[in-house]
Design a protein around this nucleic acid. Sequence first.
DNA 1: CGGTATCCAAAATGATACTG
DNA 2: CAGTATCATTTTGGATACCG
Lengths: 118, 118
Amino acid sequence: MAETDFTMQDEMRRAFAMLSGKWKLEIMWLLNQRIHRFGELRKAIPGITQHMLTAQLRELEADGLITRTVFAEVPPRVDYEMTPKARGLGPTMEALAAWWAVHGGTVPVRPGAGRRKS
Amino acid sequence: MAETDFTMQDEMRRAFAMLSGKWKLEIMWLLNQRIHRFGELRKAIPGITQHMLTAQLRELEADGLITRTVFAEVPPRVDYEMTPKARGLGPTMEALAAWWAVHGGTVPVRPGAGRRKS
DNA sequence: CGGTATCCAAAATGATACTG
DNA sequence: CAGTATCATTTTGGATACCG
């Protein structure tokens, strides 16, 4: 308990904040299974828009959780992959999913922000 | 894999959504240790406003994660306590905190919404 | 294919003042 | 003590069009 005496709440809050975002956890779950290209993620996550997918991927990249690899091909191809750092999140995600499987029920599914379909 | 074949992503996303909110995880961490009254939570969470604390507590209550007990005393007293259902989250929170303790570093600490101090 | 650029709507958070 | 009521501001998410 010396210099870096962050409390557990602090640690947790920071880690959680990094995964906040409507689609981040789902993206991480998919990348935890295997490398995905942009289009694959798009198809695997029904309802997400290009705009959001791009934005969330950029944030995850900035936080050092995923890597982005661009291939100079035609047609263009971009691969997204989890970093070793992020792979340590696997157990946490499984624990959360397991908890829900036991105690979960119906969730009101709170609406997100953004314009509604006219 | 019969009727209720929710995928792990689904389970996780729902559980995660229930904990979304800038202060919810921190509140849950504190309540996981012991019962707290409103004022105690306020002092234990530097930076939170009455407005936000009330709002987040109400949502946690609506999701069945905490109970609210009002005592007809003067001065008023309100206790908040975790439900048995929520206690199952302990391991998940610890796993997340542990992961951060190992892989975490500095987080940019993204700013929140709302009016800035003038 | 894999983005960016704009514009816009809605939700989330915050400051501040007031109340039983 | 433990809220509620307003209102301001910021972020988030989405629609649509366009680009290398």
